[in-house]
């Protein structure tokens, strides 16, 4: 059989490079950009507004009670005449801070418990996971109420309450991840190289699960924000005079019954929009950690 060789292409003008189209990229980009812009706006607002407009958001002006939205008050005023836009921003500031701190507390707790349980295995693992089950078995809100009720109303009890009720899911995610990593040959290689238990956990397991724990923390921010709002709405969280999105909606119950919708709507939007934006960003991050198409360049 004679071997046929394809002709070697002569030096013809270089063809342009062709980039394969990836259809789903467009909508994803829009989603990520919008989410990032919204989160950036919210963060900028809560950081800058108190600096740029040093108005007293608590100042009561009974002459302008319950004004509907107008140029002077884009969000209207509440039942004691406070500007709702300004107060919503202050409320978001408190709620967002509580949400972020509580989420960090929960994620750190979950990371620690999950790592220890997964890496130690055996009796320690069983004991910790029963603890996790116990926490998971009690409804979050109920336990949160129980915890805040033990303290005087304020920001910190809410942080503690939300943190203590939400570390469970992170602990489970982290433990599962650690369990799957624990049997990898690279952990074997580290052990064989003389690494002790502590070094394996701190140098090899913990860094590997950090992205997952970070993602869990971000996803928890909106959740914590809602819990803060719920506790405050019930009158158990942030004290009523302090602006938080929950206390504002609580205070708006009366006007709402009378048909004045704006004191409820705008703080409500301030809860929903950042929640969706943060979830959108977290989704993009998850796709990065957990790539389907991003097989990297396999050489």
């Amino acid at each position: 059989m004679a071997t046929t060789h394809p002709p070697t292409p002569a030096t013809e003008p270089e063809q342009p490079w062709h980039t394969p189209a990836h259809e789903r990229r467009g909508t994803r980009k829009v989603r990520v950009t919008t989410s990032a812009a919204l989160v950036a706006t919210a963060v900028a607002a809560v950081l800058l507004v108190p600096l740029l407009f040093p108005l007293d958001q608590q100042a009561i002006d009974l002459t302008s009670r319950l004004l509907p939205p107008s140029w002077d008050h884009p969000f209207g005023t509440d039942d004691v005449g406070r500007d709702l836009l300004l107060r919503s921003v202050y409320g978001l500031r408190v709620s967002l801070t509580v949400g972020i701190v509580a989420a960090l507390v929960a994620a750190a707790l979950g990371l620690a418990v999950g790592c220890v349980a997964g890496a130690a295995g055996g009796r320690t693992d069983r004991l910790l996971m029963r603890l996790v089950d116990t926490f998971a078995a009690v409804p979050h809100l109920l336990m949160g109420i129980f915890i805040v009720a033990m303290f005087r109303p304020g920001v910190w009890p809410v942080v503690v309450s939300v943190g203590l009720t939400h570390w469970v899911s992170t602990a489970r995610i982290v433990r599962a991840e650690v369990l799957s990593l624990r049997t990898r040959p690279y952990i074997d290689a580290a052990i064989s190289g003389g690494a002790g238990r502590r070094r394996v956990v701190l140098r090899h397991l913990m860094p590997a699960v950090l992205p997952q724990a970070g993602l869990a923390a971000v996803l928890m921010v909106p959740h914590a924000l809602w819990h803060e709002s719920a506790l405050s709405f019930l009158g158990l969280g942030i004290p009523a005079h302090q602006a938080s999105l929950g206390t504002m909606i609580n205070a708006a119950r009366g006007p709402l019954a009378a048909g004045d919708w704006w004191p409820t709507l705008f703080p409500g939007l301030f809860i929903i929009i950042p929640t969706l934006a943060i979830a959108g960003l977290a989704g993009a991050w998850r796709e990065r950690i957990n790539p389907r198409r991003r097989s990297e360049l396999v050489l």
Binding site: P185, Y186, D188, H204, P207
Partner: peptide, 15 residues
């Protein structure tokens, strides 16, 4: 004891 495994991808800490 020095150990070398079959799949270098799995035997190397990716970070």
């Amino acid at each position: 004891i020095g150990v070398v495994f079959q799949q270098p991808r799995l035997a190397a800490d990716p970070r």
